[in-house]
Nucleic acid binder design. Structure first.
Lengths: 116, 116
DNA sequence: TCCTTGATTAGACAACTGTCTAAACACGAT
DNA sequence: ATCGTGTTTAGACAGTTGTCTAATCAAGGA
């Protein structure tokens, strides 16, 4: 996928060079998916275990099943999670590469950090 | 601010314990702010230097000044950047603590990473 | 085969978002 | 005091989002 992020060895992932327009278009949707409180907690809950059953996720929120299903679909479309049906239940797990990619983007000291 | 994130020493920031509802409400807006391609590039451009002049930021996009100004306001409201007027020009810089907080949330191996 | 239960899809609707133009505000210079 | 330039605010508008209920699909058991 995106190379710049994984080999940003020395420093400044969000520093030089800046994210290109194309990169921004592909990465922003992942941040956007995390930008809803329900979805952020969903990812958190899913990541807390090897995998999570939808039935448990629905039970963790005061929201309808279809609403949770919708949020899971958004997370899946963003590439942050994946799922599989096994018999009656559907299980979700996080895609660690995706989270790592985001973390790498903003995880290192920036030039601003150096000066302030 | 949020303590859990900064002292998440051993591992699993997105792992156990999951993000609380209150935490999600306060953190999600930051991810949401990064969830637009224009804003993601703005943060990237600002972070690439100690600080950036709005005039340069506006010049970097095929968008109107007010639109860039609006996006900068969103980033500021989310706590990701701050700014200061000096004479005619306004300068923006990133708030490294904010980026670090987000990075810490998704930067460590999750239980999913262990199993897959 | 027909229920029952788990999960997703479809459609509706209010609320929010990204963009624009026009207007206003803030400085510095004439 | 007035003008010109940089920046933000106000208001408008099309498009998107989060939520719901109702309907549909999927799998297992009587």
């Amino acid at each position: 996928m995106t190379t710049r992020l994984t080999l940003a060895a020395p420093c400044c992932a969000l520093g030089a060079p800046p994210v290109s327009s194309a990169e921004a278009e592909s990465i922003a949707p992942m941040f956007k998916a995390l930008g809803d409180p329900v979805r952020l907690r969903l990812v958190s809950l899913i990541a807390a275990q090897p995998e999570a059953c939808v039935c448990d996720l629905v039970a963790a929120f005061p929201l309808s099943g279809p609403t949770i299903s919708h949020h899971l679909k958004v997370l899946r479309a963003a590439g942050l999670v994946d799922c599989e049906r096994r018999g009656t239940w559907v299980y979700y797990w996080v895609r660690p590469e995706a989270l790592a990619q985001l973390s790498a983007l903003l995880g290192r000291p920036t030039s601003a950090a150096e000066s302030r």
